[in-house]
């Protein structure tokens, strides 16, 4: 194992890190937006047929995503987007959409359980003051739900971040469209230079450092929120 050679290759690896981060951040943002929307649909009173239809769609979506392998979802999205619509050389759109859709289902369940953890009296108090359902959800329920969901959301973010490492192996089948994220580029350079294990170890170290950073951010946010509890 020659670590020095790997360090000289750092610019390429850092470019891989950048792609990994772009995919993860994009997917987390997309997943969070989908998650919030789906969770709101799930808890909305089923008074009109439109909401009822949306609710059925959301439930189907969550069931399908949770019931099928992530890798398979990525392959399906890659096939639809790459062959059907998209055509670009560093194609991060495919993994962002695929992981975003995947994570959205999990986030929606997490956020929904957060909503449900807020006592029903809070909604009743808001409504009894004349606030609309939407106003109450936004100003009364969500701020309280956030506290309970932050740890679980961060777990989901960390899982998602690590899961993105399969993208280069998935996109390998899409001629000329392979995405070289951190693991992808390490794998490739390792093969080419014959210094395979060293490259993998360095990649592992970088993943580990980023996950530890995320954990620190999580701890910081949790500390700040528990402070506002103790007023």
């Amino acid at each position: 194992m020659n670590f020095e050679a790997v360090l000289k290759d750092m610019p390429l690896l850092l470019n891989g890190v950048l792609i990994t981060v772009v995919i993860a951040v994009g997917a987390i943002i997309l997943g969070f937006l989908i998650g919030v929307l789906c969770a709101v649909v799930r808890i909305a009173p089923k008074t009109n047929p439109f909401i009822k239809v949306l609710d059925v769609i959301v439930r189907g979506y969550v069931t399908i995503i949770r019931g099928t392998p992530t890798l398979l979802q990525l392959l399906i999205v890659a096939n639809i987007l790459l062959i059907g619509i998209y055509n670009s050389s560093t194609n991060v759109v495919v993994p962002i959409v695929a992981f975003g859709l995947n994570s959205g289902a999990y986030m929606s369940e997490i956020i929904r359980s957060g909503f449900n953890s807020v006592p029903s009296g809070q909604m009743e108090a808001g409504r009894s003051l004349g606030l609309s359902w939407g106003q109450t959800v936004k100003s009364i329920i969500i701020p309280q739900a956030i506290k309970t969901v932050v740890p679980t959301i961060f777990n989901e973010i960390i899982v998602l971040f690590k899961e993105t490492s399969v993208v280069s192996y998935v996109t390998i089948f899409m001629a000329g469209q392979q995405v070289y994220d951190l693991l992808g580029i390490s794998d490739k350079r390792g093969m080419v230079t014959g210094n395979y294990l060293a490259y993998l170890c360095i990649a592992a170290l970088i993943y580990l450092v980023i996950v530890m950073l995320l954990t620190q951010v999580q701890k910081f946010i949790e500390r700040r929120m528990s402070k506002s509890d103790r007023h």
Binding site: G121, Q122, A125, G126, Q144
Partner: peptide
């Protein structure tokens, strides 16, 4: 309400 339901 019986349980006050103030916004914490």
């Amino acid at each position: 309400f019986q349980q006050f339901n103030l916004f914490p």
